[in-house]
Simulated assay, not measured.
Amino acid sequence: MTASIDLRVWRQFLAVAEELHFGRAATRLHMTQPPVTQAIAQLEKAIGVRLFDRTRRSVALTPAGAALVPEVRELLARAQALPARARAAAAGEVGRVRLAFVSTIGFERLPAWVREFRALCPAVALELVEATGDVQLEALARGEIDAGLVLHSPGAAPAGLACLAVATEPLVLAVPTQHPLARARQLVLDDVLAEPLVAFPRRILPSVHDAILALYHGVGRVPEVAQEAIQMQTIVNLVSGGLGVAWVPESVTQFRRAGVVYRTETEFAAQPGRRRAALALPGCETSLVWPAASDNPALARFVDFVRERGLAQ
């Protein structure tokens, strides 16, 4: 007999410990007394420790027996809770979701989601890590995260993954406060495209990077990249320092950095040869992505949670 995992024996031990009487313990367990007495004797033999002092008139716990009582109570309580916990885990009510995210979704929307999801599913551990899209895809491939919130051009989500679009937004122009473009009533695209550019490397946002390049190539220009940076906050800081202008997702405007002005597409003058319709700047989309074959019920719960909130424009 392996006493440490035989729950029936531990239930018998606890009944005797609480009743301090083998007959009453047996009645409580709906048993006769001899099997209970025999089970306790076998338990003591298996662990090599006397748990009860017995006389004809009394039963008392030894110090070793008394020390086991709270541990056995906890063991039995946890064992009793296991079926309910298994059902909760299967329903995604307990578990773990390792979620990576790009900084742009972290300015406002993600904190609200985390707060609400933790209130709805307090037994699900939501582990967050900020990472660029390329790092997220590598981590997903290695099984190091369960899902990611990635940025890409509309309709250009990473292939080979389940995908749920959660936000769309235009790009805006970040300009140093002291630059003439910051004060111009209207912006001329040719003037903007002639400015040095602070940009992100293609590897971290290939589809958005290509859309920005297409904006330049469409009017016969090649961008003069003054500096590359990975994090959007760093890009904005470099713009503040006067290194150039930058195209960033509109959500970045929530990062209020002194020395930077954000200009939107409605502030651009119509291009020559076009009607006065507003200039159409590239946009971007944020999607929740995860392995389609994932069998993590907690992740499925989180995906449903995000899906219920719909696509935020």
Rank of each mutant, 00 (worst) to 15 (best):
Ala165Asp: 15
Arg203Asp: 06
Gly65Tyr: 03
Val222Met: 08
Val114Glu: 11
Val245Lys: 04
Gly220Trp: 00
Val150Arg: 05
Arg183Leu: 15
Ile235Tyr: 02
Gly23Ile: 14
Ala79Tyr: 06
Phe268Ser: 07
Lys45Phe: 03
Ala123Gln: 09
Ile40His: 08
Trp113Ser: 05
Asp134Ile: 00
Ser207Gln: 04
Ala66Cys: 10
Ala277Ser: 08
Ala89Glu: 14
Ala41Pro: 00
Ala125Tyr: 01
Leu213Gln: 02
Gln33Val: 15
Ser103Leu: 05
Leu110Tyr: 08
Ala77Lys: 13
Leu14Gln: 07
Gly244Cys: 11
Gln313Lys: 11
Ala60Val: 09
Ile212Asn: 00
Glu265Arg: 14
Trp247Glu: 00
Ala300Phe: 04
Pro35Gln: 12
Phe268Gly: 05
Leu215Cys: 02
Gly259Tyr: 08
Arg8Thr: 15
Ile145Val: 12
Gln38Val: 12
Val114Asn: 09
Ile5Glu: 12
Pro83Arg: 07
Ser240Ile: 04
Ala77Asn: 07
Arg275Trp: 07
Leu61Phe: 05
Gln178Asp: 15
Ala300Tyr: 01
Val16Phe: 09
Ala277Leu: 11
His217Cys: 00
Ala112Gly: 04
Val72Asn: 11
Cys163Gly: 02
Ala3Lys: 05
Ser287Thr: 04
Glu195Arg: 13
Val198Met: 09
Val124Gly: 06
Asp295Ser: 13
Arg54Gly: 02
Ala88Tyr: 01
Gln271Asn: 08
Val208Thr: 02
Ala277Asn: 07
Glu108Trp: 03
Pro83Lys: 08
Leu299Ala: 05
Leu173Lys: 03
Ala26Leu: 14
Pro170Lys: 06
Arg73Ile: 07
Val252Pro: 06
Asp53Leu: 11
Glu250Leu: 13
Gln271Trp: 04
Arg256Ile: 10
Gly310Phe: 09
Arg28Trp: 08
Arg275Tyr: 05
Thr168Trp: 04
Pro34Phe: 10
Gly23Glu: 14
Val72Ser: 10
Glu130Cys: 00
Leu128Asn: 05
Val239Met: 11
Met31Val: 07
Cys163Gln: 13
